[in-house]
Design a protein around this nucleic acid. Structure first.
Length: 472
RNA sequence: GCUCGUAUAGUGUAGUGGCCCAUCAUGAAGGCCUCUCGAGCCUUCGACCCGGGUUCAAAUCCCGGUACGAGCACCA
């Protein structure tokens, strides 16, 4: 007999390339212009998991150098580290705030000018675009170091250049094949005050420069990020070559689209919340981490989800049900069963049956059973009425409520029921629609935040004012 | 337009020249279970974008095509 060899399937994340025995230093760098969202969780999970698995370090870096287009939100500096720890299961080894590192960036900007690979450019954005397209050097490019230092001084002087008058550029090569790389801008003037450092600085670095310098200073070994930043890598590599530094190993992932979440941007959400279209950042319709947490999505589930997707550069569309199936595995073992009867329909039971008793709260665990006490009838869902049914763990009845058997006597459908109970509501979020269902909830003593399984409906989390559907 | 990247079942994913008539998960369908439209267990369904080339041998390497995506911001 030939023995069929079993293929070995790689588990978890792929090996980190070019590690060479080092402990990896990774970073996750969100813009603190709002709290973290589902989209951010990938970077946190992947970078965090590598750091954890390989005994390395995770740097949480606030890239808050834009005060105009994406102004920083002060609360985010507090909430992001909390959410990072919630998601990763450990707190970041280092926290770096770009706006507090400005002196470093200015120092390197000056070094760049003095090293003759940076220059102050006073062309307008439109003018430069034409130079870029036509592979032509702009007139500022030929200025000498002294002239550039003078320009740099004027950029930093409130009485000098104004916002839009001048930028600092990295000298690459205007004939480079990729137009994105031609003499890219490193810093610009911004006069809006920064919520943390006010008007202390006038010239702010752009992402590619700030990030490149900071990765060098923090000795980052591996950068794992979206492939939309591939050209960033190329730009930054050119800068590293000028400085004589070695660029970190870089890995990319593709775009992930979750249909149910649609297109949300932090700034749009901020606006919608301000206008009252959403209750807050944890409105269950939003794809923020606080909303997901409120909806009963566990961090372990998010981690399993992203690790399973891995690090391919493919652009993918994933249904939320994939995340839910991971979540089910996490929450089911601890989710007590409870009955919630929608569109409650009263049934008077005629015949003999045990008026009191207890039912298992979870067939697979040793969870404390639930007790019931029936006066003369029970609530069932209207859809279940008018036909012979089996009241789960109680008895078989006919369409009129006559008890036919205590033991299960045939294959009629098993339905859930409530004796007593209290009116409650179940809120279901489906994309941007929110639906509230009235019903009778079995008596229980579970606290707010407990995830239960509503029999035949799905998982729900107990909130102050009712139940919020987790998923089915 | 220029530049860069990706292409394995419905959806994701493993696979880096022979262990592959292709992995695992999810999904769908069916079944089991002294009792949920849940969990668990079992069975079934289902894929290497197209065309060339290299090779004894290609999902895997090369070329071309096609499709999709991203960048070309004084955003991150």
């Amino acid at each position: 007999m030939l023995e069929r060899k079993v293929q070995t399937r790689r588990e978890g994340l792929p090996e980190l390339p070019n590690l060479n025995g080092r402990k990896p230093v990774l970073r996750f760098a969100p813009n603190p212009n709002g709290p973290l969202s589902f989209g951010h969780s990938r970077g946190l999970v992947i970078n965090g998991q590598y750091a954890k698995d390989l005994g390395g370090e995770l740097i949480l870096r606030f890239d808050d150098t834009d005060t105009t287009v994406k102004p920083p939100m002060l609360e985010a500096y507090e909430s992001i580290p909390v959410q990072q720890e919630w998601l990763c299961g450990f707190s970041a080894h280092r926290i770096v705030i770009a706006s507090e590192r400005m002196q470093e960036y200015h120092d390197y900007a000056e070094l760049m000018i003095k090293g003759e690979f940076g220059y102050v450019c006073t062309c307008s954005a439109d003018e430069f675009r034409e130079f870029r397209v036509s592979k032509t050097e702009c007139p500022c490019r030929g200025n000498d170091v002294a002239k550039n230092l003078e320009g740099w001084k004027m950029m930093n002087d409130p009485a000098g250049y104004q916002s839009g008058d001048a930028v600092l550029r990295v000298k690459t090569d205007m004939t480079l094949k990729n137009p994105a790389l031609r003499d890219w801008p490193a810093a610009r003037i911004q006069t809006n005050p920064h919520p943390r450092v006010g008007n202390k600085w006038r010239v702010w670095p752009l992402l590619d420069f700030q990030s490149a310098v900071e990765d060098y200073l923090q000795k980052v070994t591996h950068i794992i990020r979206g492939k939309d930043l591939m050209d960033s890598t190329r730009k930054q590599t050119l800068l590293y070559e000028h400085f004589g530094w070695e660029y970190p190993e870089t890995i990319y992932w593709g775009r992930v689209k979750v249909h149910e979440f649609g297109a949300f941007s932090t700034s749009q959400m901020k606006k919608d919340i301000a206008e009252g279209n959403f209750d807050g950042w944890d409105d269950p319709r939003l794809p923020t981490l606080s909303a997901l947490s409120r909806r009963g999505i566990r961090p372990e589930s998010l981690r399993a989800f992203w690790i399973e997707l891995g690090l391919t550069q493919k652009d993918i569309a994933v249904p939320l049900s994939t995340l839910y199936s991971h979540n089910t595995k996490v929450i089911d073992p601890n989710a007590p069963r409870l009955a919630f009867v929608r569109d409650a329909f009263p049934v008077v039971l005629k015949g003999n049956f045990p008026k009191t008793g207890s039912i298992s709260s979870h067939s697979d665990t040793e969870m404390k059973p639930r007790n019931y006490s029936i006066d003369e009838g029970v609530w069932i869902e209207e859809d279940d009425s008018g036909r012979p049914i089996r009241l789960k763990d109680l008895c078989d009845i006919d369409a009129d409520g006559n008890v036919e058997s205590i033991d299960r006597s045939d294959k009629r459908s098993v339905v859930h029921w409530v004796a007593g109970g209290k009116p409650s509501t179940l809120t279901i979020v489906n994309g941007q629609n929110i639906e509230t269902i009235e019903g009778i909830l079995e008596d229980n003593e579970y606290s707010v935040g407990t995830i239960v399984q509503l029999e035949r409906i799905g998982y729900a989390i107990i909130e102050e004012n009712g139940l919020l559907m987790v998923h089915d």
